[in-house]
Structures are given as structure tokens and as C-alpha cells.
């Protein structure tokens, strides 16, 4: 499958890239590892006029400690994450999650920025031009309807990234650079939850780095998929728990991927967990609550009810894991 034709830019600075992007934002795309973008381009769901390669900008692929904070450049690859000493020592969970994305080569190519900014997915959208040709284009492909839900105006495409849930659980922030300078926002706010335009980046903005506060508590990531490689999650879960000094739970974060138009935090379940002790009854209630709170759509070959069910099961497993004194 050939790529569509495009103009190709190799900016040497972020500013240059921002300017190029802002000049024709609707018809430009940023290229990082390309593992998400180029597939979509081959499928002709993205047909940009210009492709702006971020990899020609030096010094965007770093992993470093700045004071207590960990900073990861947007162009750091997932493989950089899993093999970085610093990350292995301070945030082993991040190294672990990076090895769960796709397979080895995809990790060597794919960047953290690209992973966080990857397109939402839908069984009617991530298909070839031939495949989609039988039906009129849907909202996300520039058309006037949705094949998943008939409700007007909305796209329910699903965010399936692996890195975002854990990073949100770790309260990461992102620094973005745009025509009006830089701003920092919480990673959670990067996601608009609008399937058609899933990122809240403004015109011309580029994600520059991810900032992670010092670690506290314990974090787990469980990814559910049919095979142990290549696949995106059917559903996945990041669970972060901090004890309050007693046996009770102080702070809890429960974030799912692949069940909504962005990473989905189940606040109700989190509240239920906070200041409770991790007994079996709580685990049961909390996982049921989380499964209730999410509303997956039929955007993949898996049914919403199955996703919901697995979400509950994953959370139960994760919580049980915390019951054990020294979880993995």
C-alpha cells in the first residue's frame, strides 16, 4: 500500500516546526516514529499536504532528572524508556509499560510523544480506503454520520494508547510549545475526549516533553489483549495507590485505556477506594463500580460488555495484587 503524496519538511528547531505547523495546521501533520501516522496515511484516513518531521530537531529525545522531576523528551522512543537506567530505577513501571506497546521494533521506532498523541481508533476508521469505500465517510473521516452510534454529531472513536494511563496515574504533565510560547498542562488535560479531535492541542502546538513528579505510592499496569504481543489493549488499566500511613488507602487513581475517547479515570471508584482498607468486599465493590462507570462503545471487534467485564476483572486483579504485602 503506497503512501499518499505529500510535501516533506525537515525543520531544525522546534520553532521552525511550530511555524510550519501553524501556517497550515489543518493540512499538516507531525511525524515522529511514524508507526501510527504512516499506517493511517496508507489507509488514506490522513492525507496531509505536508509532513513535518520532528526527528530532525536535535535534542528532543532525552530522559533526565531535573531536581526531583523526571523529564522525558517527546522524541524519546519507547525503547529508550524501557532501557533507560534512570527510568528503570525511579519509575520501573514506565519501563515495563513501554515493553507492552506493540512489539520490539515498534518500541524502537515509536516515540513517547507519538504514543501520547496517537490517533483514536475505530473499526470503521482504521481500515483501508477499499474497506471504507462501501459506506459513506463517517464524522472522523470528514463525513456526516457515525457507523457505531447513530447519535448526531459525535464520534466515539477510542483512545487505545498504553503509556497515557500510567503517566496520568503518576500525575505527569506535558509541556507543549506553540506559536504563543510554551504552556504546561496535566497530561490528563491533553485529551479532549472528543473522538474526532482527541487532543486539546491548539493550532500549531507541539508536545515537547513529559514531566513526572517524584514517585510516591505504588503503580501497576495491566494490559488485556488476545495475544501477548503486537496488539493494542482490548482494555487496560493503570492503578496507582498511596497508603495514608495507616492501613487505609490515602490516594487512589484508576485509569483505563481503550474504553473511551481518551484515557478514562473512574472517579467514583477512586473515591470508594480512598480511605478504605483493601478488604475483599471493597475490592468487589470498587471493581464493580469502575466497570459501571466506563462506557465503552463498539469500536473494535470486542463487544462493549466484554470490555466492561474485563475492566472490572483487571481492577480486581490489580487490587488483589496490592493486598499482597509486596506487590510486583
Amino acid at each position: 500500500m503506497r503512501l499518499p503524496k505529500f510535501e516533506y519538511l525537515e525543520p531544525k528547531t522546534l520553532q521552525e516546526a511550530v511555524r510550519a505547523l501553524a501556517s497550515d495546521a489543518k493540512r499538516s501533520v507531525l511525524l515522529a516514529g511514524g508507526t501510527d501516522l504512516l499506517v493511517n496515511m496508507k489507509h488514506r484516513v490522513i492525507e496531509p499536504k505536508q509532513v513535518i518531521n520532528l526527528k530532525t530537531i536535535p535534542k528532543l529525545a532525552y530522559v533526565k532528572n531535573v531536581k526531583d522531576e523526571l523529564r522525558i523528551g517527546a522524541l524519546a522512543t519507547l525503547h529508550d524508556l524501557s532501557s533507560s537506567r534512570v527510568i528503570q530505577e525511579r519509575f520501573p513501571i514506565l519501563s515495563h509499560v513501554a515493553t507492552k506497546v506493540g512489539a520490539y521494533a515498534l518500541q524502537a521506532m515509536g516515540t513517547l510523544g507519538g504514543n501520547l498523541c496517537q490517533g483514536n481508533r475505530c473499526r470503521f476508521y482504521n481500515q483501508s480506503a477499499f474497506w471504507r469505500g462501501a459506506k459513506p465517510p463517517c464524522y472522523k473521516a470528514g463525513g456526516k454520520l457515525c457507523h457505531v452510534v447513530r447519535k448526531p454529531g459525535e464520534c466515539h472513536s477510542t483512545y487505545c494508547g498504553d503509556m497515557a494511563p500510567v503517566l496520568i496515574a503518576l500525575e505527569a504533565q506535558v509541556r507543549v510549545v506553540g506559536p504563543n510560547g510554551e504552556r504546561v498542562l496535566s497530561l490528563s488535560k491533553l485529551y479532549s475526549r472528543d473522538g474526532k479531535r482527541p487532543l486539546s492541542l491548539r493550532k500549531g502546538e507541539i508536545l515537547k516533553e513529559v514531566l513526572i513528579p517524584p514517585p510516591s505510592g505504588k503503580t501497576l499496569y495491566l494490559k488485556w489483549r488476545r495475544r501477548e504481543s503486537i496488539e493494542f489493549p482490548i482494555v487496560s488499566l493503570a492503578l496507582h495507590i498511596e497508603k495514608d500511613g495507616t492501613e487505609k488507602i490515602g490516594k487512589a487513581r484508576i485509569i483505563f485505556s481503550a474504553v473511551g475517547s481518551g484515557p478514562v479515570e473512574t472517579i467514583g471508584a477512586e473515591e470508594m477506594l480512598e480511605s478504605s482498607s483493601l478488604d475483599n468486599r471493597t475490592i468487589e465493590r470498587v471493581s464493580n463500580q469502575a466497570a459501571k462507570e466506563i462506557s465503552p462503545m463498539r469500536t473494535s471487534i470486542y463487544s462493549p460488555s466484554y470490555k466492561r467485564r474485563m475492566a472490572g476483572i483487571l481492577l480486581r486483579q490489580a487490587l488483589e495484587n496490592f493486598q499482597i504485602p509486596n506487590p510486583k
Binding site: 495475544r227 504481543s229 496488539e231 493494542f232 473494535s300 471487534i301
Partner: peptide
């Protein structure tokens, strides 16, 4: 219509 005409969704076993 084949919903999963790719190695991504078809489920061919990997080494794992």
C-alpha cells in the same frame, strides 16, 4: 465484510 483483515486483529499466534 471482513472486520479484521490484518495481522493486528486476526490473531495469528506469535512466538509468545
Amino acid at each position: 465484510r471482513v472486520l479484521n483483515p490484518s495481522f493486528l486483529d486476526y490473531g495469528i499466534p506469535t512466538a509468545m
